[in-house]
């Protein structure tokens, strides 16, 4: 039984990461109807930048915040220089552009840091906590805790703040939002920046547990998608629950089944969900758009 809880904890930790990446994807999708294939690479940029800042001699908290800010900035630049000028490119064109941005980020990271693996120190003491037969690394708590805080902040932001509501309005009906005097282009810029921040938060959170490297964003970005699609591509809560579900499913597969096919779970899920439940597992249930 303790085995099961061990897998569950591992799954929830990694699932929180998937959820955070999925949140970034949903955020951009809601505001601009672009499916951002570069979200995983924005995450990588955050993690790698934090590593670089730390090795430049900055204290850890400063490096972490710095890494997150670099991620946000990358998101802003991405929108300003690629998405905004190419508004008329159509869905396929925009997908290809975000794929291109991802490759550019990856390529730039390879140039800057090579293909080596880096890691950040854990945020607090590294002593494992034992509850019953289950061991828990403190960083897991950081990951889950910060993911939870981020989701609460986001929910508050979208339901209370004027900017948040304007983004919601933009996502629901762009033309109506324009008529209401909302600067939709600014809102989309904002959402890309926020997605960059979210991605980078995921990046600095995961770096102490897993390694970070130039190509890290590819696989994690795709997992983030699966999380977003599981949640119905449009719901924040759905993306988070989708991420947790995927994380736990992978962890259980690795524990009880074959670890070789841990990654296959995500793709099997995506194909099956898309075909049989096109609105996602949770999207249809919650009925919420944002």
């Amino acid at each position: 039984m303790s085995e099961f809880f061990q897998y569950l904890i591992t799954g929830l930790t990694i699932g929180s990461m998937y959820g955070l990446i999925g949140l970034g994807i949903v955020l951009v999708y809601n505001a601009s109807h672009v499916v951002n294939f570069a979200q995983g690479d924005l995450m990588m940029v955050g993690g790698m930048s934090a590593v670089a800042l730390l090795s430049a001699g900055l204290p850890l908290p400063v490096a972490l915040v710095g890494g997150v800010l670099v991620g946000g900035l990358s998101g802003l630049l991405m929108f300003k220089f690629t998405i905004e000028p190419a508004r008329g490119a159509g869905p396929l064109g925009l997908v290809i552009i975000t794929l291109g941005v991802g490759m550019v980020l990856r390529g730039a990271a390879e140039l800057a840091w090579g293909q080596r693996f880096y890691s950040l120190p854990t945020f607090s003491d590294n002593e494992t906590i034992r509850i019953g037969g289950v061991t828990l690394v403190p960083q897991s708590l950081w990951v889950m805790g910060i993911a939870a805080v981020v989701v609460i902040l986001l929910a508050y932001f979208f339901s209370r703040s004027l900017t948040g509501k304007a983004i919601v309005a933009t996502s629901l009906d762009r033309d109506a939002a324009i008529l209401m005097g909302i600067n939709t282009s600014r809102m989309q810029l904002f959402s890309f920046g926020l997605a960059g921040l979210l991605g980078a938060v995921a990046g600095v959170l995961i770096a102490p547990i897993a390694f970070t490297y130039a190509a890290a964003g590819l696989m994690l970005g795709l997992k983030g998608f699966v999380a977003a699609v599981l949640g119905g591509l449009g719901s924040f809560r759905g993306a988070l629950v989708g991420g947790l579900t995927l994380g736990v499913a992978e962890s259980m597969m690795a524990g009880y089944g074959s670890s070789d096919y841990k990654d296959a779970i995500a793709y099997l899920l995506i194909v099956v969900i898309l075909i049989f439940m096109p609105r996602g597992i949770f999207g249809g249930m919650s009925g919420e758009r944002v």
Partner: peptide, 10 residues
């Protein structure tokens, strides 16, 4: 290579 491919795509 990766960088250039990305730039070409965009």
């Amino acid at each position: 290579e990766t960088l250039v491919y990305g730039l070409i795509l965009i």
